[in-house]
Write a protein that binds this DNA or RNA. Structure first.
Length: 310
DNA sequence: CGCCTTTGACCAGCGC
DNA sequence: GCGCTGGTCAAAGGCG
């Protein structure tokens, strides 16, 4: 860049640097020839750097395109799945994946303040009359059963599944995703010999996100993490770096599905430039992690497996 | 002391 | 109604 403007200085190409019969008054020209050689060398290294830069850029572009394609195909599949599900069960209109749930909770109207209501939230004004009644009902329920009120927002919450490759010997059932979780239960399920762990976001109850982690029955080297809901706060790595990656160990943040989904949403809502920047940032930050490729492959294969099953 | 995990008990949905 | 199953609760204990 600057180097090129340097080199724009008109060079006398006919000047032979090795010529012995240079007039005395041409000493300054010799010096300038020396400089020119230096510039040429610099030019070479600069062009090398430029080539390297171009190569890295094209690689980055390829990866970005790959990532965008993966996101797009995921989104298509997701939409397709939604369509199929809505066709199968038209009465269920708000959930992405029909989760077997208990009887409709009376505090269904309760919404979370930030970004949880993926679908249409019920008009609060139309429910105002019921609100008081529901509160009384809820209080009564809590008095009777001392149970944590289960908000039905989970019914409307986005459900995403993430596949994380782990050591088969690792029984901890932990998926590092940059958020802090509190385990509140573990169960052995019928269809899988390995137990399922239930986690709640540490910011609960203000943050409604839950996740279930279970080793895949088909591929024990994979942990299947199912996320329900959307965090209504920033992750610990948003401001102060990935807490889980402190201390040298690199962490693969694999909220890939959600991330893609968010990306897809942004696609609809924001302009392409912004999205491209986001994709590039995402791609560049992801490709920095050497484990990412393996994790990405596992996540994609898991997705495909799941999709082929459905 | 506060937060977390463990784990048995409990609850609710569902099929029969 | 009963049993099965998945999800949640909450007491107890561990850990920093």
């Amino acid at each position: 860049m600057d180097g090129s403007s340097f080199l724009d200085i008109s060079l006398d190409l006919n000047t032979n640097p090795f010529s012995a019969k240079l007039p005395k008054k041409e000493v300054s020209v010799l010096a300038s020839t020396h400089l020119k050689r230096k510039w040429l060398e610099q030019d070479e290294s600069a062009s090398e750097l430029r080539e390297e830069l171009n190569r890295v850029n094209s690689e980055n572009k390829k990866l970005t395109e790959m990532l965008a394609r993966v996101c797009e195909s995921y989104n298509e599949l997701h939409n397709h799945l939604e369509k199929l599900q809505s066709r199968q069960s038209p009465e269920i209109e708000q959930t992405d994946i029909p989760i077997k749930k208990r009887k409709q909770d009376p505090d269904e109207f309760l919404g979370f303040p930030i970004g949880l209501s993926s679908g249409k939230t019920e008009n609060s004004s139309s429910n105002e009359d019921h609100h008081h009644h529901h509160q009384q009902h809820e209080q009564k329920n809590q008095l009777l059963s001392c149970k944590r009120p289960v908000t039905d927002s989970f019914n409307k919450a986005k459900v995403s599944t993430v596949y994380v490759p782990t050591e088969t010997s690792d029984t901890s059932l932990t998926v590092k995703d940059g958020f802090q979780w509190r385990k509140y239960g573990q169960k052995v399920t019928r269809d899988n010999p390995s137990p399922r762990a239930y986690f709640r976001c540490s910011f609960a109850p203000s943050c409604p996100v839950k996740k279930k982690v279970q080793r895949s029955a088909e591929d024990p080297s994979l942990l299947v993490a199912t996320y329900e809901g959307t965090h209504n706060h920033l992750g610990p790595n948003a401001s102060e770096g990935d807490a889980t990656s402190q201390g040298g160990s690199s962490t693969v943040t694999l909220d890939l599905v959600n991330g893609c989904h968010r990306l897809a949403l942004e696609k609809n809502e924001r302009n392409n430039t912004m999205q491209e920047v986001l994709i590039q940032q995402m791609a560049s930050s992801l490709t920095k992690d050497s484990k990412f490729t393996a994790a990405l492959a596992a996540a994609i294969s898991g997705r495909l497996m799941e999709q082929s099953r459905t």
